[in-house]
Design a protein around this nucleic acid. Sequence first.
DNA 1: TTGTACGCGTTATCAA
DNA 2: TTGATAACGCGTACAA
Lengths: 342, 342
Amino acid sequence: MANLLSVAKLAGVSRATAARAFSSPESLRPETHRRVMEAARVLGFRPNKVAQQLRTRATRMLGVMVPSLDNPVFAEQLQAMEEAARAAGYSLIVTTSGYDPGREEAIVEEMLRQRVDGLALTVAEADHSAVLVKLRRESTPCLLVHNPPVAPCFPSVGVDNRAAMADATRYLIAQGHRRIGMIGGPLLQSDRARLRHEGYREAMEAAGLTPLALIEMPRHTQVALSRLAPALGGTEGLTAVLCTNDLLAISLIGELRRSGRSVPGDLSVMGFDGIELGRHLYPSLSTVVQPRAEFGRVAVDTLLALIRGATPQPLPLPHVLREGESAGALPASRQAPEPYDP
Amino acid sequence: MANLLSVAKLAGVSRATAARAFSSPESLRPETHRRVMEAARVLGFRPNKVAQQLRTRATRMLGVMVPSLDNPVFAEQLQAMEEAARAAGYSLIVTTSGYDPGREEAIVEEMLRQRVDGLALTVAEADHSAVLVKLRRESTPCLLVHNPPVAPCFPSVGVDNRAAMADATRYLIAQGHRRIGMIGGPLLQSDRARLRHEGYREAMEAAGLTPLALIEMPRHTQVALSRLAPALGGTEGLTAVLCTNDLLAISLIGELRRSGRSVPGDLSVMGFDGIELGRHLYPSLSTVVQPRAEFGRVAVDTLLALIRGATPQPLPLPHVLREGESAGALPASRQAPEPYDP
DNA sequence: TTGTACGCGTTATCAA
DNA sequence: TTGATAACGCGTACAA
């Protein structure tokens, strides 16, 4: 492929002049500029970013690692990040880790070798992550997305998971529920799930209610009703369940209805994330909305600030409780025998 | 950051030897190799891919462009592509076009400047796409994903959309339905939607039934029930509806039920794509499954073959009809007055 | 087995 | 306003 030198020759100028035609056209005599551009057109010249990157020591590429793209919460965030990045002249290298620390490690190493200007990572466990330990010794700016800011050296973009789930719990309590449970994916896979459970516990205890242990599902997007069934039914059974993510909630609702139970009649269900789809379901999903589009924007803005050498301290993003049809007031028939006295 | 030369100096060898320690360790005396690696470790040396890319004129990067990541069908395909690519030592630059030809153009230009080794594109309209016209003059291998292989120069990975929708239509006919409609997103946005509608028309006509025009929804992931309601109800109303994608089907089911109609009692609904989520809903989604994981694998394999200089002719991927609960047999009460005679 | 030397396509620093 | 020239970090003939 044609390079600057061949363009320069055809235009009858030096390579330096040809280069300037692209980088600072105003410093050229119009006629010269025109000649160079014409030569470039004739030769089908296209600037080589790899060479630019080598020379300027900046790639204008960001490395993004998410656990999975099967969960719309990550896909929607990625979509927003891509738009924000491109608007700022950056490209995204995208990878998925599957929550696997080994893959996390390999991916980050690969991206460092690629000399990305910055990293936006969502790791499984921010507080004992080998990747983050390693990155602490590197100079490449790194931003955590969704992970709580446990690691003081890395800024983090996300909602306050604990407060958000506490809000959701209080909402159910205000609807009259007393026996409220919580389900999640494999616990060890996510520090966020743990924080959310803490928020649930706090809100329950603050209301004088008994928080239950997290009921673990084998996968973080699909419910095994058998693990939950024992806790349902009877006068002592749960009347409401919080889920650590929307997909789990949707799956739960499906399983419940397929087993002949009604939602929210027999069980109120709340999700977490606020994926777009949840609005369109019937019953529509009651959930805690993470502002995913803003996530992407803020994540990119913060990372670019880091790259510029600033030390941004992003605040937790605001979450919003979206009332849907999947969680409702406690039916009179299921009120607890003992009255509730706050 | 440390470079090969500094490593070489510390190890007491020439730069060439240090380079070989990484590219062909077997050609070094073990002791020499050890010394180099030790020096690299001490200095925190990390090979610079940008320099490698410039020198070898190969980036081992693939450019991927999809219309949107909000639709799980693209996100799930991307996930599969990323895994396949990384397994083969390639990275992915990911972009979204929003079906906007202007953005498509800018994105592809950007990726060519980045010297990606290959492109995997999903364009809005493969047959009058400015991007593809331009790419025809370029030497960078390009693969279409999901787009029908209208452009003879570009291999294409996808299901046979026409046959797939015809299968779905025949399925509904076999269930006893006669008045079957089809809804889709904004028509002009997608050549795939058009092919699917043709498949529907073919199957209807082959059964002696009257195909209807595609009922256009304002967005391709959300139903406006008002546009469909006139065609429902009454003894002449539709008894089944095909949707051009799963999100539309899910949204339709939600709106129908919210309006007091039952699915499939009042209306059978079929989706298209087979996103994972559809299995977990209640009613679970009847749909045509595109093998998304295989999509990713095959797309990457085909593109890599193209890059190697081969001329692969990928066959259409097999689609599978997944029977769910959202489409059922025509209720006796809604049988048409005139009998059906094939 | 190891070293020398050139080139990949830019940007940037000086001079002219 | 334009030109000559040295990096940027690496791969790889070719020579030793």
